[in-house]
Amino acid sequence: MTDTALEAAALGKRFGRLRRSAGWALRDCSFALPAGRVCAVVGPNGAGKSTLLALAAGLTAPTEGSLTVLGGPAGQARARVGFVAQDKPLYPQLTVAETLRMGGDLNPGRWDARAAERIAAGGDLDPKARIRALSGGQRTRVALALALGKRPELLLLDEPMADLDPLARHELMGVLMSQAAQHGTTIVMSSHVVAELEDSCDHLLLIGGGRVRLAGDIDALLETHARVSAAADTDLAPHTVVESRTTGRQLSALIRPAAPLPADWRTGTPSLEELVLSYLRNPEAKAAGAPAKSPEESVA
């Protein structure tokens, strides 16, 4: 068991080297995710979230750099990694029960049939129903049951809650959190809806334009940033300015303070959503959060 579940070093992935549309989906990404965390991978559509998760799941090989998963190269720890893709692919001709039985057959020695069946049963799913007859939300439930049934040490979820109703979303998020708490599972889930992840995640990986914009413990990130209001002519140096806006005589800014703030500024802690949006709106703002090597460092 290593302390770092996921560690990227100068990771890059380029698609279609030969085609004219060739482009980097990810470039120069470095970050570390301590084991046991619930990490939100946030970013706009097309930011590279799915690519990152596919790289971590060993579904595609990096073009440059490296990605270490549970202490080894991505793809060597398949048995210990669970993955649910964005479109929740399942075999349409199988029944729910068959799908779960297949999970047992394909993950010998790891499969927890009872846990998988419990998750599927939570949605009143008929075990004899064929996958092709299920709604999007029901398929998500089966896909999650399949991923959790193998008792993964690292669970990678790409937009897992997108087509669930609020009730199912709440329930399944609860299942995920209790899994994380009980078994110390590291969970990495992507979303472009920050609010969806705010309550459950304790680690953030913000990706924009194929690069890591912000990475680290969410509480620590919020603490190291401040929302400030001051007179319009205030000089914000030496603090790192993520975003600033002047309205009349008032300057509002989101900054990373480099020193204690003057007493005449009105300051507040930003919300996670404010923080994320500020970084996304300002692509030139310097990426924050040095790659954490261990939980201690990342919290510091």
Binding site: A57, R78, V81
Partner: peptide, 9 residues
């Protein structure tokens, strides 16, 4: 991809 993320390469 579903098959490749079970315990099989």
């Amino acid at each position: 991809r579903l098959a490749w993320t079970q315990s099989t390469s």
